[in-house]
Amino acid sequence: MSADILLLFTFVLAIFLGFELISKVPSQLHTPLMSGSNAISGITIVGALVAAGSVTEGTLSVVLGTLAVVFATINVVGGYLVTDRMLAMFKHKEQGGPR
């Protein structure tokens, strides 16, 4: 139980940290923020890898795990790449001078 309380504690602190971090992002960068944070939510891949790799625990959990790996990897790879593509265009503008 105490381990669960620690996890909950971590969760609450991380929520506050998130609010602090994100409220400083200017509206121009809201789209890249969204696609970039979406890529971060692909962190579920960590759980998916373990499920897909635990082959001794039955077929169904491996199938589910492998599917989860596919979805999470799409999320991670696609999310980071597209955010990078977008931000590359924003960077160009720096020659025009920062706002």
């Binding site: 971590t10 940290l17 609010f19 971090l21 939510s41 960590v46 373990v50």
Partner: peptide
Amino acid sequence: AGFVIGNTVLIVSGALVGASGMIL
């Protein structure tokens, strides 16, 4: 999912994204 497997990095990252979406 982080609470399911007792994994802190999932909880922290998920909370950051959750907060970000709420602010937007």
